[in-house]
């Protein structure tokens, strides 16, 4: 019953379909991205990239501008300045976006009265995908038994996995995840971590936001750390953690430096 029982469905290993050499556009590129809400600048001239076949951890405390950045990348929020592209083009210009980019955002996103299967079925249809994909992704995220259950009966973890299933429907080469381990129990966190690693090992570009630094440091290849809407550090987990006990310690050292420097 526990989620990790079926972890074999996560494909580890050398199944690289979209390695960096195959398609150098399969990445996310953020350039000078800015978002203002009135006088408050939520995202301030932010730039970074996410490379294919890597898990890019997008880290920062709550309110740092992570979700806003991802929402601009995905065309949900308007961009005030700068650009955000996936595979070289803005998300909103993609004809069948689900076949290129899968997005698993925070809880919600499904009508409470829909069954899991009905929710995924209309998304599949909107992306021109066959309905057989619905059962495939339900199985991949271990929700087969809940296929006919209404979304309103779902636990937080099941809701997260339903959104993950929706993201994977179109077999996308780019996967964007916003706080995927938020509110999960240890078993759920373990499952999600191994699942995410598996996605990158298949050659997909994974961009994963979280405020849980050390959870992400364990699976990420590359880290982008932001605070107050600005980039404070980018690099490998090893490099950013260097000289500190944990990534979290390194983060607080970094952000206090920045805050001290700015004010």
């Amino acid at each position: 019953m526990s989620p990790e029982d079926d972890t074999p469905t996560v494909h580890h290993g050398p199944m690289r379909r979209w390695g960096p050499g195959n398609d150098d556009e399969s990445m996310i590129e953020i350039r000078g991205l800015t978002k203002r809400f009135g006088a408050h600048t939520a995202v301030d001239d932010l730039s970074f990239t996410a490379a294919a076949g890597q898990v890019t951890g997008f880290l920062g405390p709550n309110g740092a501008g992570k979700s806003t950045t991802l929402r601009m990348l995905l065309g949900l929020d308007r961009i005030d300045a700068g650009t955000a592209t996936v595979t070289g083009v803005p998300y909103t210009s993609l004809r069948r976006p689900g076949t290129v980019v899968g997005a698993q955002l925070d809880v919600g996103g499904a009508h409470p009265a829909h069954t899991a299967r009905a929710h995924l079925a209309w998304i599949a249809r909107a992306n021109g995908l066959p309905l057989t994909r619905v059962d495939e992704v339900l199985e991949r995220v271990d929700l087969t038994r809940a296929a006919r259950a209404r979304v309103r009966t779902f636990s937080l973890g099941m809701g997260q996995r339903l959104n993950l299933a929706a993201a994977l429907l179109g077999d996308p080469r780019v996967v964007v995840m916003d706080e995927p381990v938020n509110g999960l129990d240890p078993a759920g966190i373990r499952w999600m971590r191994s699942f995410t690693r598996g996605l990158a090992d298949e050659g997909r570009t994974v961009l994963l936001s979280s405020h849980l630094m050390d959870e992400i440091a364990r699976i990420a290849d590359h880290l982008v750390v932001i605070d107050g809407g600005r980039s404070v550090a980018q690099g490998t987990p090893e490099r950013l953690t260097d000289g500190h006990d944990s990534l979290e310690d390194a983060f607080f050292a970094l952000t206090s430096e920045v805050r001290g420097g700015v004010s």
């Binding site: 976006p97 409470p112 209309w122 909107a126």
Partner: peptide
């Protein structure tokens, strides 16, 4: 109105960004 229940509209716009 169903779009605004459970924030379904977010999923709709991800699937149909136009």
């Amino acid at each position: 109105g169903g779009e605004f229940a459970g924030n379904q509209v977010r999923t709709s716009l991800l699937a149909m960004p136009g």
